[in-house]
Design a protein around this nucleic acid. Structure first.
Lengths: 346, 346
DNA sequence: TTGTACGCGTTATCAA
DNA sequence: TTGATAACGCGTACAA
C-alpha cells in the first residue's frame, strides 16, 4: 500500500531537483532530452499524476463546481445534474452535489462548506423554505466573495446572478390553450401555494389563457395544495382533495396540474368517479417525469427540458469562471418548454 | 468583490503573526485572552473560515468521497446517492458525483480524475461495459495507492474491498415463490444477458424457486433481453419481444421481471392481448422505482432499499477512512430485499 | 541545462 | 505569550 508518488520522490530517486522533474514532465525546452526521457519514463512507470489539491491551492482554482438542489430523488433534478455533469466533464470540471432537502438551514450549511475553497462556483435551485422565508443573505455573501452563482428553475429576482429558467408562464398558457381549443370549457387548475415561483407563474399562465379565450375565471376551479405535505407518501390525502374538487364541480372537463403527481392522481380519481380520460375529462401535467409516459392513459405534459437546463447552467457558470473580463452582465436564459401530447388529451 | 479573507490578511491587519492568529482562532491556551478576543472578533467580523483546500493539502485528507454510478437519471441510483449524502454530511464529508454512463472508459477517466487527491475514497457501482470486459485494473490500482473503495449493487468477486449488495438471489426466489404459491404454474422470466451480476443472480433465484416447487424449467419461458438497447426510448422493440413471448406460450400465468420497465411493459402487453392482471396473469418486478406504485394496476415488486444501501456504503467507507488500524478485513453487507405486494399479484 | 527560492493557506513545532 | 520556520505538493521566476 504505497502512497501516490510525488515530484519530490521522483526527484530524490533520480537525484535531480524537484523543479527539474516538474519541468521535464511538462516538456520544457529548458531541460535536456536525456533528462526529460529519464524523468518521463520513470514517471510513467510509477504512474505519476499531479496532485489536484496542490494544484488547486497553487492556482486558486479547484476546477470543481457545486450544485445544490432541494432533492435528488426526483426526475427533474437528476436530469439537470446529468446535464451539468456532461458539460462540466467536457470542460474539465468535477461536480460536487449538495442536497438542501428543501431546508433553508441545510442550504446555508452546504453552501458555506463548499464556499471555503472547495469549489469555484455554484449552480443552485432554491429550497422551498428559502423561498418562503425570503432570506437570501447567503447568496449575496457568496457572490460578494467573488464566487459566481447560477440559479435554475427556482430562482429569485432579488439576487443578481445568471439564471436559467423554463418559460413557466408560456408553458402553462399553451397547455391550457390546448385544453380549451380541444373543447374544454371548465378547466380546473391543481397547483401549489404561491411562494414557489414556478407554481405562481404556471398559475398566471392558466389565468392568462382563460382570459384570452374569454372564459370566466372561477376560483372554485382552482385547487391550491400545500406542498409541504409529501403527497407522494400520503397519496390518500391528495386523492381526497382532488375528489372534493370533482364532486363540488361536476362540469369540469379539463385539468391542468402543475406537476406530474397531481396530474396522475387527478386522472386516477377521475376514472374512479366514472369519467373517461380523455373523452370526458382531458388532463395536462407539467414535468419531465417518467410517470407520464408509462401511465394509462399516458399523460400529456409540458416538458421543461431538464437536461438542457443543466447544460446551460453549467455553460453559463464555466464561461463566467473562465472570462474574468465580463463584469456583472448577468443573463437570464429562458428554456422554451414543449407541450408533449399523449393520450390524456384529444 | 473582495476575496475570502485569510490568516495572513488578519495577521497583517492586526499586526501580529500568522501563527498567533491561527492559535487564537483555535482558542489555544498559549495565547493571551486579550489577543484571542481581538483576533476572534476581527475574524468574526470578516467571516473568516479556513480554506478547505489548504487544510486538505496539509492534512492529506479531503473529507470528500467520490461516488461513481452508471446513470443518475434512475430512481435506484439517485436514492443511493441520497443515502450516501445523508451519512456523509452527518460525518462531515462532501460528495463528488461521477457518471460513467455505462462506459468503461468514462469510469476509468472519472476515477483517475478524482483519485489524484480530490477525494479520500470511492463508492462505486460498475458500468455494464466494465462488467462485460472484465477489466478491473483501475480498481486494483486505486486500492494499491491506499485509497479505499466500496462497491455496491453491481460488484465483482475479483476485487477485494468492502461491498454492499442486495440479496438478489433470495429476493428473486421469494418473488417467484409468491407467484407459484398464488397458483401460477407457468411463470415466465424476463431478464437480461448474464454479464450484469444482479441479472444472473435474479435468474438463479427464479430457477431455484421452480426447482423447489418441482416445476419444470422451460427455456422457452425465459426471455433474455439485450440491455445495451435502451428500451426506455425504444419501447416498441421491448413490447414486440414480450408480445412474442406471450404468443409463443399461451399458458403463461405469471411473470417475474428483473426490472421495473420490463414488468410494466409486460403488464401493458398482457392486457392488450386480453389478459387480466392479476386474474389471468400475475406480475412481479424488481426495483425501487416510482412507476410501480403509480401504474394501473400497481405493480408488486422486490424493493432493494436503495437509500439504505447508500447509507451502509458511506458508513463502511468512512469507518475505514477513520480507522487506519483495521487491515483488509473487508466485509460484504447484504441488504435484505423486501417483496412489496400490490395489485399485480393476488 | 539545472537548481534555488517563493508562494498558495494552513497548522505544528520549536525558539525567543 | 508570541513569532519564525517547516511542511503539505506544485509550478515558475530567477539565479547559477
Amino acid at each position: 500500500m504505497k502512497r501516490k508518488i510525488t515530484l519530490k520522490q521522483i526527484a530524490k530517486e533520480l537525484d535531480v531537483s524537484i523543479s527539474t522533474v516538474s519541468k521535464a514532465l511538462r516538456n520544457s525546452v529548458e531541460i535536456s532530452e536525456d533528462t526529460k526521457q529519464k524523468v518521463q519514463a520513470f514517471a510513467k512507470l510509477y504512474n505519476y499524476r499531479p496532485n489536484n489539491i496542490a494544484l488547486s491551492l497553487k492556482n486558486r482554482k479547484t476546477n470543481t463546481i457545486g450544485i445544490i438542489i432541494p432533492e435528488i430523488v426526483h426526475h427533474f433534478f437528476s436530469k439537470v445534474i446529468r446535464g451539468v455533469e456532461l458539460v462540466a466533464n467536457q470542460r474539465g470540471y468535477n461536480v460536487i452535489v449538495g442536497l438542501s432537502n428543501e431546508s433553508f438551514a441545510k442550504e446555508v450549511i452546504n453552501m458555506e462548506m463548499l464556499a471555503n475553497g472547495s469549489i469555484d462556483g455554484f449552480i443552485i435551485s432554491l429550497s422551498k423554505e428559502t423561498l418562503r422565508q425570503q432570506d437570501y443573505h447567503h447568496f449575496n455573501e457568496t457572490i460578494n466573495q467573488g464566487m459566481p452563482i447560477v440559479m435554475f428553475d427556482r430562482v429569485v429576482n432579488e439576487i443578481q446572478c445568471d439564471k436559467v429558467i423554463v418559460d413557466d408562464f408560456e408553458g402553462a398558457k399553451n397547455a391550457v390553450d390546448k385544453l380549451v381549443n380541444n373543447g374544454c370549457n371548465n378547466v380546473a387548475l391543481i397547483t401549489t401555494k404561491d411562494y414557489v415561483s414556478v407554481g405562481r407563474l404556471r398559475t398566471q399562465g392558466y389565468i392568462e389563457s382563460l382570459k384570452n379565450h374569454n372564459l370566466e375565471l372561477k376560483s372554485e376551479l382552482i385547487l391550491k395544495l400545500d406542498d409541504n405535505i409529501d403527497y407522494e407518501v400520503n397519496l390518500d390525502a391528495l386523492e381526497k382533495e382532488i375528489q372534493q374538487l370533482f364532486k363540488a364541480n361536476k362540469t369540469i372537463d379539463g385539468i391542468f396540474a402543475v406537476n406530474e403527481l397531481y396530474a396522475l392522481t387527478a386522472m386516477r380519481v377521475a376514472s374512479r368517479l366514472g369519467f373517461n380520460v380523455p373523452n370526458d375529462i382531458q388532463v395536462v401535467g407539467f414535468t419531465d417525469g417518467v410517470l407520464s409516459k408509462h401511465s394509462t392513459p399516458s399523460l400529456s405534459t409540458v416538458s421543461q427540458h431538464a437536461q438542457l437546463m443543466g447544460e446551460k447552467a453549467a455553460t453559463l457558470l464555466i464561461d463566467r469562471l473562465e472570462n474574468d473580463d465580463d463584469y456583472e452582465n448577468y443573463q437570464t436564459q429562458i428554456i422554451a418548454s414543449e407541450l408533449i401530447e399523449r393520450e390524456s388529451t384529444k
